[in-house]
């Protein structure tokens, strides 16, 4: 067998899997999206139709906020955990990986336990102020759920990246007169940029498309996955839900590509 045909043979499984699970369904999905009464224009509905557009904006805002807050919290915590040794540290790090396996339903359930009608926050606030604070069943509950879901993942990525930092870089910056803030700004954060992009992308994509948590919290939260669900199962509007699905994918992909090229120069330089 020649080298070429051997490589070709190895590629066969990849080709089959790609065709079966990606290309064909995607093609079908894209075709279905154009089969509605408006035809191809159905794709524009996600941008043009006010209700859809509002939902899209909501979802993007939610995902952006989740990503930013996750990155900030996870960077501070990850840096601390990697740089300091204290009793209980390894247990804490082990605990961090604990929620990784939870499905969205469980995360939603925990948010209800925390901020639902019988939740801890509600009880506490009614004791303190007489007002019961309940926000589990709104987009804020969802936000909290996504944070809970994303932060551990990002922390682990950041910790790995911090471990690989050359401590000499920080010492060099200090020897040149840089104080703690300048060291973070000029040396540490740029060096972590690739980790930010990689882990931020996952947090963002998850927050754009996750469904289980939203479904557990309430069926009327205004995010795209819920909209697709209601169009599909309740209104049996196949064309619209297909168009929305493709739109969700394309927009997420586009924003991530934008973020990557935006930070691209920094990442390349830090590599």
């Amino acid at each position: 067998m020649s080298h070429r045909s051997f490589v070709g043979l190895c590629l066969l499984p990849l080709a089959v899997v790609t065709a079966a699970f990606f290309l064909l369904p995607m093609a079908r999905l894209i075709a279905t999206g154009a089969e509605g009464p408006q035809g191809l224009a159905g794709y524009l509905a996600i941008l043009v139709e006010p209700r859809y557009r509002a939902t899209l904006i909501n979802t993007v805002l939610l995902a952006t906020a989740t990503t930013l807050v996750t990155l900030i919290v996870a960077t501070i915590v990850g840096m601390f955990l990697q740089r300091h040794r204290f009793p209980g540290r390894s247990i804490l790090i082990a605990m961090l990986t604990f929620p990784l396996a939870f499905p969205g339903v469980v995360v939603g359930f925990m948010i209800i336990l925390l901020a639902g009608r019988q939740g801890v926050i509600g009880d506490l606030s009614s004791h303190l102020t007489g007002q019961k604070l309940v926000f589990a069943y709104s987009i804020y509950g969802l936000f909290l759920g996504y944070l809970y879901f994303s932060i551990p993942r990002v922390i682990l990525t950041i910790m790995a990246a911090v471990q690989k930092l050359d401590p000499g870089l920080e010492e060099a910056a200090r020897s040149l007169g840089a104080g703690p803030w300048a060291v973070q700004r000029d040396v540490v954060l740029p060096a972590l940029a690739p980790a930010f992009v990689a882990s931020g992308a996952i947090a963002f994509a998850t927050a754009m498309g996750a469904f289980g948590t939203a479904f557990t919290l309430a069926t009327n939260i205004d995010v795209l996955p819920m909209l697709i669900y209601t169009e599909f199962t309740l209104a049996a509007n196949f064309a619209t839900s297909a168009a929305l699905s493709v739109g969700l994918g394309v927009i997420t992909w586009f924003i991530l590509a934008l973020a990557r090229s935006f930070s691209g120069s920094a990442v390349a330089a830090a590599g």
């Binding site: 870089l169 910056a173 000029d186 740029p190």
Partner: peptide
């Protein structure tokens, strides 16, 4: 200071 690894800023 000059370090053995040089510690030049890659960014």
């Amino acid at each position: 200071m000059v370090f053995q690894s040089y510690a030049l800023f890659p960014n």
